[in-house]
Design a protein around this nucleic acid. Structure first.
Length: 527
DNA sequence: AACCAACCCAACCGCATCGGA
DNA sequence: TTCCGATGCGGTTGGGTTGGT
């Protein structure tokens, strides 16, 4: 294919690719980068292929400096460069444009790639958009070598629940995936033994009972027995919320409430926020269940600490319709940005269809896997395992892989320890207030100063009039307040998922506590 | 030192999409 | 509406490099 070296001026396309009657135009109907270029009646030599020389690079750079990007076919016409437009564009985007990051991927980038691939599949360009300075080609190459390695080792590309994730979305899983266990049976969260390693103990504490005993959702107090926190949402409203949530995050989708299918806890929908500048907000939206978002570690590379104007708390888990009998902890997926937001919901009315579904799940004796946010969060752990596993399988670990393994082992251990400590702390300190819902923000682990994040969030909550006290704060009548973009108030939040406070309040039907000086005062009353 | 296999990566290929004429 | 050029994207290829034997 590539006529490396020797400058293929051979006229006939050098290697058979001339047979391609490319549909992509190519001036004069000539196949891509092949044949005789004719310009102004003067025959030019056949377009060159193969590796670029420094001279060619210089010509292209000079041209782009003067003319800007685009109109690549004009390069060949207006310069001495004998390269087709496609080749010029590729060379520019992959090698010559400024702000390219060269060198091997950092561990954080590797994790992000794995995470993105689990969500997007082979959408290299979209993945590259989440990795500033990296090209789709780089990511693609990296991934393909990873695939080859795993195939050779006879390992699945993803842990099993990654498969479930794909299937849950109705997507076709990548063809090379090798399922290792049935997908239709919910697996205990802790059963993450992969390829012979003892199962991790991590996520079991993610679901635990509210102190005071288990209360089957079938016995949830009816609205008449307890204050109604949310109006029962008709199915259409739920669908509308779902459609809205998708369109808010993924502007490429246009989903109408009439046609959208409500996600079930077994079919989470993962969406990305393209509106968040060069950062990576992977969000799983489950109207009525939970919306989780994670700040990927890459963000923290450039901005290690959340600034008061930056707004890092793009977490809005709002399980308004969850059973009262469960508390969900949502460890954020990546260890470098660990921050836990746990919501305790007071009993509330549950729409019948969701209620039935939940009862059904409980009858199977396992709720943990039914929570999409949990499967989301667990995936992060498994990805770490996955990566670890790969380094373990290196025949002879290089220095890099060894350090990587140590690094991730350390992160994993930290993660487990933090989770355990977190559980103990939260049950002891916070308890369960039957009259008020609460959100607990706990410190996580990792490289980020989460204490700072925690303090900022606390300060913000106080500033908007929330009766937040230290680690625990109450919400008005059990309504959830999304701690999203706390810095901006209701009017400006372009730096945060593209949502503004008004949208959040409207979409999720939440009503924050407002003080006289609170920016929330400008929000319309929903109820 | 030679050989070989695995890995890396730049570049090409084919197709899809978009926008203007 | 159709055509066509420009562009973008994902898949594929094969030469170069590296490391083990």
């Amino acid at each position: 294919m590539v006529a490396h070296g020797g400058g293929s001026y051979g006229g006939n396309g050098a290697n058979g690719s001339s047979s391609s009657s490319s549909t992509s135009g190519g001036s004069g109907g000539v196949g891509f980068c092949v044949g005789i270029g004719v310009s102004g009646g003067m025959a030019k030599p056949a377009l060159k292929k193969g590796p670029w020389t420094a001279t060619e690079d210089a010509i292209l750079v000079e041209y782009v400096k003067k003319q800007g990007e685009g109109n690549w076919n004009a390069v060949q016409k207006n310069t001495s460069l004998s390269r087709c437009g496609k080749s010029c564009r590729l060379r520019w985007t992959n090698h010559l444009r400024p702000n390219l990051r060269k060198g091997s991927f950092t561990p954080e980038e590797e994790l992000l790639i794995i995470q993105l691939h689990s969500e997007l599949g082979n959408k290299w360009a979209r993945m590259a958009a989440q990795l500033p300075g990296r090209t789709d080609n780089e990511i693609k190459n990296y991934w393909n070598t990873r695939i080859k390695r795993r195939i050779r080792q006879g390992l699945p590309l993803y842990p099993s629940k990654e498969m479930a994730h794909f299937q849950g979305q109705g997507q076709q899983a990548p063809s090379l995936l090798l399922p290792e266990e049935p997908l239709d049976q919910p697996q205990p969260v802790a059963r993450t033994a992969i390829r012979g390693r003892p199962p991790l103990q991590i996520p079991t504490q993610s679901v635990f009972q509210i102190p005071g005993g288990h209360q089957p959702s079938s016995q949830c107090p009816s609205p008449s027995q307890t204050p109604v926190l949310l109006s029962p949402q008709p199915n259409h409203q739920l669908k509308t919320a779902f459609a809205n949530s998708l369109s808010l995050f993924d502007q490429t989708r246009q989903i109408s409430p009439s046609t959208s299918t409500l996600p079930s806890p077994h079919s989470p929908t993962t969406i990305l926020s393209p509106s968040y500048n060069d950062t990576n907000i992977a969000a799983a939206a489950f109207p009525g269940f939970a919306l989780t978002a994670s700040v990927h570690p890459y963000q923290h590379h450039t901005s290690p600490l959340p600034s008061p104007t930056g707004g890092f708390f793009q977490f809005s888990p709002l399980p308004q319709l969850l059973s009262a009998s469960h508390v969900y902890a949502t460890p954020v997926e990546f260890p470098s940005s660990q921050m836990y937001i746990r919501q305790m919901q007071k009993p509330m009315h549950i729409p019948q269809e969701l209620h039935d579904h939940e009862v059904n799940l409980e009858n199977h004796g396992n709720m943990s896997m039914s929570n999409p946010s949990l499967s989301e969060s667990n995936r992060g752990i498994e990805l770490l395992e996955d990566l670890l596993d790969q380094t373990n399988h290196q025949a002879v670990p290089t220095n890099n892989s060894t350090s990587l393994e140590q690094s991730h082992t350390s992160l994993l251990n930290n993660n487990m320890q933090e989770n355990q400590e977190h559980q103990l702390k939260s049950t002891d300190v916070n308890g369960w207030n039957p009259d008020m819902g609460s959100i607990n923000v706990c410190e996580g682990s990792g490289m980020v100063n989460n204490k700072s994040m925690h303090e900022e969030l606390s300060n913000f909550l106080q500033s908007i009039g929330s009766p937040a006290v230290h680690e625990e704060f109450s919400l008005t009548d059990g309504l959830s307040m999304p701690p999203l973009d706390f810095s901006a108030g209701p009017t400006t939040s372009e730096d945060s998922l593209g949502l503004d406070m008004q949208q959040i309040v409207s979409l999720f039907q939440v009503e924050p506590t407002a003080s006289a000086s609170s920016p929330w005062n400008n929000l319309p009353s929903i109820y």
